[in-house]
Design a protein around this nucleic acid. Structure first.
Lengths: 186, 186, 186, 186
DNA sequence: GATGAATGAGAGTTCATTCAT
DNA sequence: AATGAATGAACTCTCATTCAT
């Protein structure tokens, strides 16, 4: 049931956003009573914090795994984008929620959200710096570009959700080409 | 007084977001009575719609002007980024609000917000297509890349607001280099 | 309207107690909307705090006045009892609420309630001590007896409300005789 | 286990009061599951009713015993006060709960609470009337004074709990002297 | 135009109680 | 007998909005 609730919450957050996703609406969507939400999550914010904590943990684990297995930094980034899009296909709503609500000031103080906002770009930054040392990546402000890439992935995912015009595979390849060309040494 | 209210609204929306910016809070911030808000704006959504309409009009006008004056599409984009950062310096809060709340599903049906979300990228797309015809810009999915660029500018602006680590000028130049390299024919 | 709300609150607190006097019930009793309660009082506790603050102020003012006008401490006590019963006749519900809810642990941290519980007995204590110095009152533990008297007045008032068997005047005289005989030097 | 639950309930009622002592909190305090409370008691009110029934039975039994053994009504009262203070020392929390919650309107309809509130003073009244017939006790309204004394004992006990300033023995003796002098024939 | 008290629907949350295990 | 997840009514409080002044 805990899972049913979380899935309903993600679905509603995706379509309506934090402000319009009331606990009552989430309960209805999940087909449970309002009180049941509080059996499994301490509060509305507690529920959303858990959402981000889970997402951060799974993404971070994957990124660290890639970094350990692939020698080339550019390859790590490309593989991560592939994986990100794969996860996206698995749960489109979740991706949208993660992107949208991570920028919601009302949620900025949640530990899970902060990890997602701060620690994930930091990992990107480390990869870029390693790539620079390896000569694969041109001189650039690693911190800044890590954030740019992070947001571009977000944007691509976001576009995919909102404007249903794009073919997801071409979008993924377009993004990869875009980033690859932008950071490579010539 | 109408202006005082709008400025207070922008300031509060920037720091607290749509959900936490109550009409009472906006009135307090502006130093006027709650009732006065409804003298000048029909509703909370009406106020925000106006905010986006104004912003869209000024940005669109500038883009059309650049397009008319500069022959090179790449130059137009670069000049637009310059101008965007200039406007940003003039009103940082407004930029943040435009970016954040344009993605808020609770505001998605406002005409002003829709213009900002849909018509501005369309203008970018037209510029890219023109650049392709001129041979300045490599073959790419104009519609998709226009959205990517649009979101990257957003991301850069957003980063500038949230993480106070970056030097705004280097951020602007980094972004211009990033985009220029990404779209140019080799 | 602020007054209407307070009167409705007192009436409901008297008949139902703090736990059963919901804000909705108070609003209904007062014939106003729930929201109106929060226009005039910050919260349920804020409303009750105000109730006690007002009651404390009026009783304390009267006690100080008597103390200034009457030379005999016993007379002051007797006059205060008379006045207390008079105020009681003017607002029986209020008296009951003050007595009952001042002992409610959920309200113990309200400043108004603390004043009522602590500062009023302190004033009694001062009167007793003065009476002892004047030789009117027998040797006794002033602090303790001040609390005993305070609670006896309460009890008498409480009885009057709950058990409607007693004649209020005989109750008052019985109490006065009881106290007078208990504290006098023989 | 039934006893563990009752003790936890008394402890929590003493410190937090009826309103704040939720069934979950009582279960936590007792170290059992919420469901177990309903195995032994029909409801929250049923539990509290049992609390008062037990207390009434033990106090009433003792009072009747004293009345049978002691010829002097004044002695009976004094002995009862001694015993009351002794019971108090044995379970201070219980005493506080009995006093406080017997006045809670939300509990006024419980049979156990009504016995405690009505039948105990009636027994006092009978003793006073007997003392009057024996010439030990001055002419007074027996019903009224029985309530006064009942409440004074309450008050003394209550004070002992709340204001930790008093020495319990001196408080007991002060109260006994106070009452003895108040009711005696001169 | 400007005000702010009044509104009432709806938000998040709690809680006594039930019942399948 | 013991458990604790599930329930849904009811709670306190907030908020966009209205309207008489």
């Amino acid at each position: 049931m805990k899972d049913t609730i979380m899935k309903a919450a993600v679905s509603l957050l995706a379509s309506a956003g934090y402000g319009a996703a009331s606990m009552r609406a989430i309960a209805d969507q999940a087909g449970v009573a309002v009180g049941s939400l509080y059996v499994h999550y301490s509060s509305k914010k507690g529920l959303i914090d858990q959402l981000f904590k889970d997402a951060f943990a799974s993404r971070m684990a994957h990124l660290l795994d890639l970094q350990a297995r692939l020698p080339s930094s550019v390859d790590v980034l490309m593989a991560f984008i592939d994986e990100h899009f794969r996860q996206l296909a698995a749960d489109e709503s979740l991706a949208l929620v993660l992107i949208r609500e991570s920028q919601n000031p009302q949620l900025a103080d949640l530990p899970g959200v902060r990890s997602f906002e701060e620690d994930l770009p930091k990992a990107f930054e480390a990869i870029l710096e390693q790539g620079q040392r390896q000569g694969e990546i041109r001189p650039l402000d690693a911190r800044l570009v890590s954030h740019l890439i992070f947001h571009m992935i977000r944007s691509a995912v976001y576009e995919r959700q909102i404007c249903c015009h794009h073919d997801p595979l071409s979008l993924r390849d377009e993004l990869k080409t875009f980033i690859k060309q932008a950071i490579s040494t010539r």
